[in-house]
Simulated assay, not measured.
Amino acid sequence: MDPIKLWLVDDHTLLTEALTSRLAAFTDLWVAGRCPSDDPRLPIRLAQERPAVITVEPESARVPTPELFATLRAAAPEARLVALTGSKDPERALAAARLGADAWISKASGMAHVVEVLRGVARGDAWFPPRLLGTVLRGLREDVTRSTDGPLDALSGREREVLVCMVDGMHGPEIAEQLGLSTNTVRTHTHSVYAKLGVHSRLQAVSAARAAGLLPRPKDPVQTS
């Protein structure tokens, strides 16, 4: 039986080198390659190698998560995506699941667990940590059951607030201050907005919102003496 072909996407070179070395001990797994998220040759290399499983660290990626996942999906449509990450945020796990992640593994996991999940994912299984699974399942279920009369109806209340701020021309730190959120939380909601609207950039999200009738709010008139 041919080994499971893996590809590692992580901007921390030392980590991928160490993981490659440790995975070499398992004869049924083969790391065909590794590269950072912003490697311009990534799509071509994935299309050539056609890995069965791609591990990716979205938290430290220099490429926005929706764009990165879209690139991986387009270059290797049959590959399974595994978020191998240091994040323990349930909302980020949900955002990754919405973007097509088949599994979410903590970098703190032992090698035996990592290998078990990689083998399972290659067989068609999915895996998210039990403490994150509730949030992921509820979010995905809400996506299915929520009204789809319009493109913005799939957004949660908070996601819509973030989108409104984007339409108003605000950026991450400004949105965080406006809504009383951390910049990381705003980033998570932004990625979720992208996924639900089927877009991959801020410009596309704003365009979709405007097309759906969400226009910039009128600004307060400037007081003059």
Results as ranks from 00 to 15, higher is better:
Thr16Met: 06
Thr71Val: 11
Ala93Glu: 03
Arg73Asn: 10
Leu29Glu: 13
Thr16Ser: 11
Ala18Asn: 04
Lys219Arg: 15
Val162Thr: 05
Ala74Cys: 10
Arg123Phe: 02
Val53Met: 00
Arg141Cys: 11
Leu84Pro: 15
Trp104Cys: 09
Asn184Trp: 12
Pro151Phe: 09
Leu118Asp: 10
His12Pro: 06
Ser147His: 01
Asp149Asn: 07
Glu142Cys: 08
Glu161Ser: 13
Ala18Val: 01
Ile105Tyr: 01
Gly110Arg: 11
Cys35Glu: 11
Leu137Phe: 06
Arg158Glu: 13
Asp89Lys: 06
Leu81Met: 03
Thr148Gln: 13
Val114Ile: 15
Pro151Trp: 09
Ser192Asp: 00
Glu142Thr: 05
Ala103His: 00
Arg119Val: 04
Asp28Ala: 11
Val164Ser: 09
Ser201Leu: 04
Gln204Trp: 08
Thr190Ser: 09
Ser147Cys: 09
Val117Arg: 07
Pro58Leu: 05
Asp168Val: 10
Leu137Trp: 06
Pro36Met: 03
Ala96Gly: 08
Pro218Phe: 03
Thr27Glu: 07
Arg160His: 15
Val162Ala: 04
Gly150His: 12
Glu116Met: 04
Asp125Cys: 11
Ser156Val: 05
Thr16Lys: 02
Arg119Phe: 02
Trp127Ser: 05
Glu49Cys: 01
Asp168Ala: 15
Ala70Ile: 03
Met111Trp: 07
Leu179Gln: 08
Arg141Asp: 13
Glu116Ser: 08
Ala93Val: 09
Asp28Phe: 12
Ser156Asn: 05
Asp39Phe: 01
Ser147Glu: 02
Thr71Asn: 10
Ser37Asn: 02
Val9Met: 04
Asp2Asn: 14
His189Glu: 08
Ala52Cys: 10
Val199Gly: 08
Arg123Thr: 08
